[in-house]
């Protein structure tokens, strides 16, 4: 099954994406995750810009889904990431995984997100009243991806 992988400026509908993932008769589980723009701790967020590396991004995302497929028995997989300017509460990312059983669906969705965070060439810039700042990478994200390697 070829995964659906999209990098796009426009929004997506979780309902539509979920509907598509429920079509296979051999899959008894669908896990979906969506990531949203959230407020900042210390200052007001006006907007966020997401930049990416066209060409590499799509290739890395396809590779992550392929790795997940090698670890778990999965059905359809959908991975969508938005780029461009986004405001508070807007959807940024969607991962949806269908599988015969729930454990594989939960694990694969988390695996894909953990790897996306450290491997996919996206960069966030936050715009506030005080100026624009590039978001710094988090050690906790590196650790989350690393934990999957130790699980092998």
């Amino acid at each position: 099954m070829k995964p659906v992988i999209r990098v796009q400026q426009h929004d997506f509908s979780v309902a539509e994406e979920y509907q598509r993932l429920t079509q296979a008769s051999n899959c008894g589980a669908v896990v979906t995750f969506s990531g949203l723009v959230r407020e900042l701790a210390d200052t007001e967020l006006e907007a966020m810009t997401l930049e990416h590396y066209p060409g590499m991004t799509e290739q890395v995302l396809a590779g992550l889904v392929e790795q997940a497929r090698q670890r778990w028995q999965l059905g359809d997989v959908t991975l969508i990431h938005r780029v461009g300017r986004l405001t508070l509460n807007e959807q940024i990312v969607f991962v949806g995984v269908a599988a015969p059983h729930r454990k594989a669906a939960f694990a694969a969705a988390m695996f894909i997100m953990d790897y996306l965070k450290t491997q996919a060439p996206f960069w966030k810039q936050e715009h506030t009243a005080e100026g624009s700042y590039w978001v710094a990478a988090k050690d906790s994200d590196q650790q989350a991806a690393q934990n999957w390697q130790e699980d092998l």
């Binding site: 990531g35 997401l50 990416h52 590396y53 590499m56 990431h81 940024i92 990312v93 997100m113 996306l116 965070k117 450290t118 491997q119 996919a120 060439p121 996206f122 960069w123 966030k124 590039w134 978001v135 710094a136 990478a137 994200d141």
Partner: peptide
Amino acid sequence: LAFFPPVTGG
């Protein structure tokens, strides 16, 4: 080739 900072998507 490309050079870039640590990635921060998701």
